[in-house]
Structure formats: C-alpha cells, structure tokens
Nucleic acid binder design. Structure first.
Lengths: 114, 114
DNA sequence: TTATCTACCTTGTATGACAAGGTACTCTAT
DNA sequence: ATAGAGTACCTTGTCATACAAGGTAGATAA
C-alpha cells in the first residue's frame, strides 16, 4: 500500500473524533492522562501528548470535565478526570451525532459497492 | 439540547471524513462540483463551498482525481470529476481505515454503556 | 437588456493535531 | 549520597483545513 499519502489519511481520518473518544473514555474509566494517552494511541485515535493535554485543558475550561489529584504508588502524582453534568450531556450529543455521521459514511460506501 | 457547543461538536465530528466521502461520491457517480456539494450537505458532511473547492483542487494537484468539462443543458459548463488509479487506491485505503476507526469508536462507546 | 439562476473559484480567520522540547517527582543501583 | 531511568505533567511553534463571505461569469427568461 502506498505510504505517500497514508500519513495524511491517517491524520485526517482521526480529526474531530478525538474529543468524542476522550469523553467516552473518561465516562467509563477512572483514568489519568498518561493512561488515557496509551489507550487512545492503541485505538489509533491519537498520536501525541501535544494533542491530549491541550484538549483536556480546553474541556476543563469549558467545564465539561473536572479533575482531582491522587498520589501514584510509584512516580509523580496523577491527575484523574471525571465528566461533569455538562460533559455527560455533550457525550450524549456526540453519541447521537456519531450514529448519524457513521450512517452517512456507510451509505456513501455502500453506494460505491453496488 | 444545549446549542452552545453543538456547533463545535458538529464541526469537529466531520473533520477528516470529508475527503473520504468526496472520493466515495466521485467513485460512484458521474458528478460535478455543485451537485456534489448538495449531496454532501444533505449528508451533513460539509457546510460550505469554501470546503469543497479547495479540497477538489488539492485532490487534483495530488492526481487523485481528474476532471473534464461538459456543457450544461441550462447554465454555465460543469466540471465533472473522476477517480484516477491513485485515487482509487486512496479510496480503498480509506475504506479499510474507516472500518478500523469506526470499530475503535464503537468499542469505546460500548464500554461506556456497560 | 436586466434580473435571476447556476456554476465556477478565492481570501481571511480560527481552530486544532502534531512534533519537539521542557519540568519535576520517585525509585533503584552504585 | 547521587546519578540515571522511568513516569507524569505541560508548552511552544508550525502546518493544514473547515468555514463564512465575497467575487466572476455563462445561460435563460421576463
């Protein structure tokens, strides 16, 4: 497979899904940033710390998430995130939107397979 | 539902899926830009001409698509687009990637519903 | 011959993903 | 004690791109 544009494709495909994924992950797990980063890297939705930290700062500023500090059994303290009520509402909205968007895309793909 | 952030959500959710959608639409249909725009607006994947025209220029420059002019039965001539071989390969790559990404997202959503 | 519709395209702004670089705490091995 | 490795936090600068708004021009109908 041609690698020349793959990089671009991978980058672009991910855009905008990240915020949704982050909210989902926070909703489900008791989780701190560094672990979140690993999880989202595994899911191929994020590649860099420079994406996640500013995003979490923005979500904090917008009061979609809150956090508390907790000591680590080994290493520096960790910042654990939680959804606020507003964040939960946002997540619900995202879920509805995700269904709509993925149906749109799947429709366009299917048309192509006829 | 709170409209305050909905705008942002709608914008962000769409990012990066657009190129994929455009390639799919071109692959399936004999289509010119203005019609493509309507189709993608209906699918809620695009809102503005300022998104589609530069994107098609870029895809042309990258030789993923080619075009030919054809007269309209009423109005100015139309620019019809086609996939090149490279464009077809890109589309295949996008389709594989789409499956992967949407599975990732669906996995994160499901975890959240447990 | 003017207005309307269709179709093309460009410019300027804001946002955000990324790579790279940076701080500081804890533990282990010397 | 202290140097290094590992963990966890965060910032800065660059580039790409979605969008709104504005602009050009051909064809048809009043």
């Amino acid at each position: 497979m041609n690698r020349e544009y793959l990089t671009t494709i991978e980058k672009e495909m991910r855009k905008g899904l990240i915020e949704f994924a982050v909210l989902s992950v926070i909703a489900k797990n008791k989780i701190y940033t560094s672990d979140m980063l690993n999880l989202l890297k595994e899911a191929q939705l994020i590649t860099s710390e420079g994406t996640l930290y500013p995003l979490l700062s923005r979500l904090s500023r917008e009061e979609a998430v809150s956090y508390y500090w907790e000591e680590s059994p080994s290493g520096p303290p960790r910042k654990y995130y939680q959804l606020t009520n507003k964040g939960q509402t946002m997540l619900n909205t995202y879920q509805i939107l995700w269904i709509k968007i993925s149906q749109s895309i799947n429709f366009l793909i299917k048309k192509n397979e006829q």
